[in-house]
Nucleic acid binder design. Structure first.
Length: 502
RNA sequence: CGGGGAGUAGCGCAGCCUGGUAGCGCGCCUGCUUUGGGAGCAGGAUGUCGCCGGUUCAAAUCCGGCCUUCCCGACCA
């Protein structure tokens, strides 16, 4: 076990922070609640951005950028929205040495400013739909912060669409929820539940909020993405109106949806172990780290020559030659595995570290594969391939170290990580039919409770006060086989998932 | 924002009670020996003791205020 990372069992919160620190994902900024996303952490975010951006564009969305500052008056136009967000807004009152006539809010989310602009761009049904996404930072004045999970400033994407009809907007809301669900599962290898929130948990200003929820290794729930059907709330507040096919002037129907750097926290808490970070191959900036082992200079030359040959076989002579010309730290040689994703294979030639140190170095950074080459391997014409997933090792003849082999290996790890997380998640879900069992469940530990429940703000608040658990999402909305609401005892055809959330 | 812990070398910590100019382990640098799982020996470098103010001949140490961070709670896309 790593000696700079406390075990999950001993102190889960500390383990989470230790993993971040050991993998150099982020560091604390001088301002409370703010973080610096370090290169490895940022590369993970870039991988998510790349994949999501592609998926958004495949569905017709385009990117744009709206300003950081929002006039204070904008926030007040939508009643629920201001109530929800005003308390956690940072406000700029001075600029250029003078007090501003109207204070500016640093965006906590951009519905208002985007609504204002859409009002100017939309006149006719022919102007719809508008399908815009932006990649941006937002600020929310959080009382209690945790790296990646809740920071005062965070990076995210927010999609904002406007449509002709309610049906079309609802369809978009659900379509984007599905994008998030499949992205989480296929790309991040994190199983998620998807569905609507109850009224008490919905976004301030939305008609209905849908979410994806994951279960972390400690059994707590993490909201990993949301998609909101905003109805005509913001269209009315900002006068997004158009003349319809029926020649009637009407308000547009809008949606918004987002995921944030919180997903990096989800990634850590879903897959990592007591040795540090574990990354799904599709997300990892490095697909493999090559560690040479040698004693003498002769052996070193022999081993490095063999590694060069192996890399040329795997990545092509052109790439190896390019890496040799490339500017950078030649102690850790970087070779591109996928030029389009910038994922690399690294050859760790550092002579300041022994093989054991390098082993831990790359282990803690979650690199899916480690390839080791020592004199014995050179003599036998093999390399040793080890998996971060389970430490298993495989002896592979030089000629067999092909892209097809590595791709298959990576795909296997990606799938195994998902399967492992899914098994863990499903074990953590219990079906509960009485409030007594419900109380016991959340008194004993964490995990999800699947229940029949008739949502109610008052009851949900009471349950939260008693157990800390909240409705994470609705899984069957009035169409489940008739049952009994765990709290009221009344008939219920609504099934929900309760959990203690981050 | 309430309660509790912490802040001294890059990291982890001791010293503080009882004031007298800073120490340990790891890491780092140099050299040699090592190298299939976090090396050994020798030598060396690194500190406005979180910040501001007060008490004092003298403050890491005592007093006051502030900042940051961790845990618990309240709040919360």
């Amino acid at each position: 076990m790593a000696n700079n990372i406390v075990s999950r069992e001993k102190d889960y919160s500390q383990w989470y922070l230790d993993v971040i620190s050991a993998a150099e994902l982020a560091d604390y900024a001088p301002v409370r609640g703010c973080m610096v996303i370090r290169p490895v952490g940022y590369a993970i975010w870039e991988a998510m951005q790349r994949e999501l951006d592609r998926r958004f564009k495949e569905l017709g969305h385009v990117n744009a950028y709206f300003p950081l500052f929002i006039p204070e008056s904008f926030m007040k136009r939508e009643a629920e929205h201001v109530e929800g967000f005003a308390p956690e807004c940072a406000v700029v009152t001075h600029g250029g040495g003078e007090k501003l006539e109207e204070a500016l809010m640093v965006r906590p989310t951009s519905e208002t400013v985007i609504g204002h602009m859409y009002a100017q761009w939309v006149h006719s049904w022919r102007d719809l739909p508008i399908l815009i996404n932006q990649w941006a930072n937002v600020v929310r004045w959080e009382r209690r912060t945790r790296l990646f999970l809740r920071t005062m400033e965070f990076l995210w994407q927010e999609g904002h669409t406007a449509h002709e009809s309610s049906e079309e907007a609802v369809e978009e809301t659900l379509r984007m929820l599905e994008v998030y669900r499949t992205f989480a599962q296929d790309f991040l290898a994190i199983p998620v539940l998807a569905g609507p929130k109850t009224d008490s948990e919905k976004f301030a200003g939305a008609v209905r909020t849908y979410c994806i929820e994951g279960m972390m290794q400690d059994g707590k729930a993490l909201q990993m993405g949301t998609s909101h059907f905003l109805g005509q709330n913001f269209a009315k507040a900002f006068e997004i109106r158009f003349e319809g096919r029926d020649q009637v002037l009407q308000h547009a129907w809008t949606t918004s949806w987002g995921v944030s750097t919180r997903l990096i926290g989800a990634l850590i808490m879903s897959h990592s172990d007591d040795d540090g970070l574990v990354l799904p191959p599709k997300v990892s900036p490095y697909v493999a780290a090559v560690v040479p082992i040698f004693k003498t200079e002769d052996e070193k030359a022999k081993v490095l020559a063999f590694i060069r040959q192996a890399m040329a076989g795997l990545l092509g002579e052109d790439e190896v030659a390019a890496a040799e010309r490339r500017f950078g730290n030649d102690q850790v040689q970087q070779l591109f595995y996928h030029p389009q994703t910038a994922q690399q294979v690294v050859v760790d030639k550092r002579d300041t570290m022994r093989p054991g140190d390098k082993h831990w170095f790359w282990t803690q950074r979650g690199v899916p594969l480690r390839i080791e080459v020592g004199p014995r391997d050179v003599d036998s014409g093999n390399v040793v391939v080890k998996s971060r997933l389970d430490g298993s090792k495989e002896i592979v003849p030089l000629a067999a170290l092909t892209r097809a082999y590595v791709d298959a290996k990576l795909a296997g790890i990606q799938q195994a990580l998902f399967d492992r997380a899914l098994a863990r998640r499903d074990e953590g879900i219990r079906t509960i039919t009485t409030y007594k069992d419900f109380l016991n469940h959340f008194a004993e530990g964490r995990g999800f409770a699947r229940c029949r429940f008739n949502p109610s703000r008052v009851v949900e608040a009471q349950i939260k006060a008693e157990t800390k658990a909240t409705v994470r999402l609705i899984t069957r909305d009035g169409d489940a086989e008739p049952g009994t609401c765990i709290f009221s005892g009344e008939p219920s055809t609504t099934e929900v998932i309760f959990g203690v959330s981050y």
